[in-house]
């Protein structure tokens, strides 16, 4: 599917007579762009497709993927309260998401409860509270669109907000890449050379929460974890360094969300699930055919098995 994306650019480079041989494909690609809602959907899917895998790579290598899920579910109470108070939902969702993450830190620090159980309890509780508040506070909120995303109702203001968040986060990652690499690889070692690990941890929480809020409208709070983890995990199977994982993951993210939006348009499918399923299909392909780690293509697999 990825090659279709490059076609419009390709066409510009081709001499005029050849252009006539591609009209149906071109119409197929360009037709949706006549509608503003599709232009907006494509714009936000590109931003989110780049941002999510880059932030998600950090979640994967720290074995904290479920933390993304926790924060995503934890934004619900904040959404409801900020709608009720008439303040910006960004603010409420942010505070609420951070509180969810801190709840886990608190439970872990103060008891022997293991992190997976703490996460399961925390995210379901915050989610329940959110759904409860939406009813109690009589929010005029389409629950479905928050749970599963509604990429076709994105406004230009939404795009700008997502773009600002994305640029900020990517800038921070670029500037502190060296420190974040050390921290995520060897936390004790990072502490032992004097890096401020608590500040870095808080920074991660903020980064993940903002990423989720930025992506919420595109894929919804339940499915955002898939965009955080899926494309980056696909890349993880194909490369050997973190920055490569981020870049290739971003490419897969863009391809997934772009393809998902088009599928959604042409076949009248829900956009969030379409994006997620494309991303998961890419992962499946990598799992089967990765040159170094693919189930079917792993070098010397049979040989190694026999030797053991």
């Amino acid at each position: 599917m990825g090659k279709y994306k490059a076609l419009p650019l390709l066409c510009l480079a081709i001499p005029h007579p050849y252009l006539n041989s591609l009209p149906s494909m071109l119409t197929w690609l360009l037709d949706p762009l006549n509608y503003e809602f599709m232009r907006n959907a494509i714009a936000i899917s590109l931003i989110v497709g780049i941002l999510c895998p880059i932030v998600g790579s950090y979640l994967i290598v720290q074995r904290m993927a479920l933390l993304g899920d926790v924060i995503a579910h934890s934004v619900m109470p904040g959404l409801s309260i900020s709608l009720f108070l008439g303040i910006d939902i960004l603010f409420g969702a942010f505070v609420s998401g951070i509180l969810g993450a801190l709840t886990i830190v608190l439970i872990r620090a103060q008891s022997r409860v293991k992190v997976d159980s703490a996460m399961a309890l925390t995210f379901s509780s915050y989610f329940a509270l959110g759904v409860m508040l939406i009813t109690v506070l009589r929010n005029k909120l389409d629950l479905d669109s928050f749970l599963f995303g509604d990429i076709l109702s994105i406004s230009v203001a939404d795009i700008w907000r997502t773009l600002v968040i994305a640029v900020l986060i990517l800038l921070v990652i670029k500037l502190f890449y060296k420190e974040l690499l050390f921290y995520t690889f060897d936390q004790t070692g990072a502490q032992a050379i004097g890096l401020p690990i608590n500040a870095i941890y808080m920074g991660f929480m903020v980064m993940i929460t903002l990423t989720i809020i930025a992506s919420m409208q595109a894929v919804g709070v339940i499915l955002v974890i898939s965009l955080l983890v899926g494309p980056a995990l696909t890349a993880y199977l194909l490369v050997k360094e973190l920055h490569q994982m981020m870049l290739l993951g971003a490419l897969f993210g863009v391809v997934s969300s772009f393809t998902g939006v088009y599928l959604s348009y042409f076949f009248n499918l829900p956009s969030g699930p379409a994006i997620v399923l494309v991303s998961s299909s890419l992962f499946l392909l990598a799992l089967l055919f990765s040159p170094s780690q693919g189930i079917l293509t792993r070098p010397n697999l049979l040989f190694r098995r026999r030797r053991q």
Binding site: F185, D186, T188, E241
Partner: peptide
């Protein structure tokens, strides 16, 4: 640190 503290599957050279 002890080697067991590290995730040796981390994508890094």
């Amino acid at each position: 640190p002890q080697r067991s503290q590290i995730d040796w599957d981390y994508p890094i050279t």
